[in-house]
């Protein structure tokens, strides 16, 4: 009897853990999450080890605008995420880096560039990025606390 009681309690506990894990997964996947960014490519807007609050709704509805800062999967390494600014939307004319000529951003793609144009590997290296790779849009910087700021332009 006693063993059954303990077993029941354990099952109940794991049930709760699974429930809350699933709720967390859905929140982070469909609503928003926190991202720590590293690297110099977005200086001076963002510095290394800033923590950002991002939302997943706008990219899922494909309502990105020029000037939005987005988190995307790196096209050359899907396990890595990149944080860049949307510079061109489909149909826009943008200036490439190598070869140094202007491109038209194709349908279903965006042109991403880092703010620190001298030290950023972005669309000027690997070309336009498919919209399917974009995960979320940055809305606030939440850490460090004294630099709390909204990062939306609109």
């Amino acid at each position: 009897m006693n063993i059954l009681k303990i077993l029941g309690k354990t099952c109940g506990f794991f049930g709760y853990v699974i429930q809350y894990a699933c709720v967390t997964h859905c929140t982070f996947e469909y609503l928003g999450d926190f991202v720590m960014c590293s690297g110099p490519s977005m200086e001076p807007t963002l510095e290394s080890n800033n923590i950002l609050l991002t939302e997943h709704v706008t990219p899922r509805l494909y309502r990105l605008q020029r000037g939005d800062i987005v988190i995307a999967k790196n096209p050359t390494n899907p396990k890595q995420n990149i944080c860049k600014r949307v510079v061109g939307l489909p149909g826009d004319k943008v200036k490439g880096y190598f070869p140094r000529r202007s491109h038209i951003v194709p349908r279903g793609h965006v042109w991403l560039e880092g703010d620190n144009s001298g030290n950023s590997s972005d669309s000027r290296i690997y070309g336009p990025v498919p919209l399917g790779l974009i995960r979320s849009r940055v809305i606030y910087r939440v850490w460090p606390l004294d630099k709390f700021a909204s990062l939306q332009e609109h």
Partner: peptide, 8 residues
Amino acid sequence: FGIPIGVT
């Protein structure tokens, strides 16, 4: 709780 479990 059912919907998030299903979606996950």
